[in-house]
Nucleic acid binder design. Sequence first.
DNA 1: CAATCGTCCTGCGGGC
DNA 2: TGCCCGCAGGACGATT
Length: 281
Amino acid sequence: MPELPELEVLRRGLEDEVIGKTVSDAIVNKQPCVNPKPPAYQKAMVGAKITAARRNGKIVLLDLDNGHTLLLHLGLGGRIVLRDSLLHDPDQAQIVIAFQDGSALHAERLMFGNIHVLPTDKLNADPRIGNAGPDALDELPAAAQLRDIYGKRKSALKALLLDQSALSGIGNMYSNEILHRARLHPQTLGAQLSDAELQRLHDAIHDALTAAIADGGASETNFTDLHGNKGRHLEHLRVHGRAGEACPECGTTIKELRVSGRPTFICPRCQRKKPVRRRKK
DNA sequence: CAATCGTCCTGCGGGC
DNA sequence: TGCCCGCAGGACGATT
């Protein structure tokens, strides 16, 4: 499933390729994917020029010059590619946004993904924007501020990293990579974290996301950039999906477990559970 | 099943 | 000590 790094790769592609283009047609092959429903969807889109490509967590935002903004949400395994022409199998895509210059964005294989159009000044009405915490890349708070976000909570770090209202953009794969880089066990409680551990967590978040973006993202399922490139980060993952392989730090066999109901990969040596503090008499 | 959001329920702490 | 309220966190359902 695409997470923050993959969406940043997509955003950069959109910034390079579609800013200034004017929408000539908005085709919907799969109704549940768009909001509002046609024909209101087309009314908000057709004739509008794209002015900016932004990202908020896992949501990519395309601003239009008519006061609306397009929210792109890839969901579990979708991708968005730029085709040379509308004639290129438009029925294969769930959604096609065609431009006056003959190019077109095709949204394909969106699972739980969708495209919404909202007035730009009402973006907060969408909970994925309005309830989102700071972006884990662009707005990552310093370690000391992370205590306000994670350090007071009595949930497992695994669940906290996945909580989009705490920090936005981290999903299951990068939560595994971050916890390994930070040498923290996923069941560590937020409130148990020392200052040094919060610093490690901060650095791990930054480093894991930045490294993935530099690799063009990781394509676990169907993600590609605008041109169909999958990205090279899958082969650089340290623990995610690597149960039975050797930890790149210490060689110990990587183990899979479930934490907060999610597949979780750890090195049992690098990521030891904090001892449960005995209650004093 | 996948990931996320919304809803519902429980349990805990604080205030009185 | 006991009760109520509010909130945090966990479970569960809906979504495609």
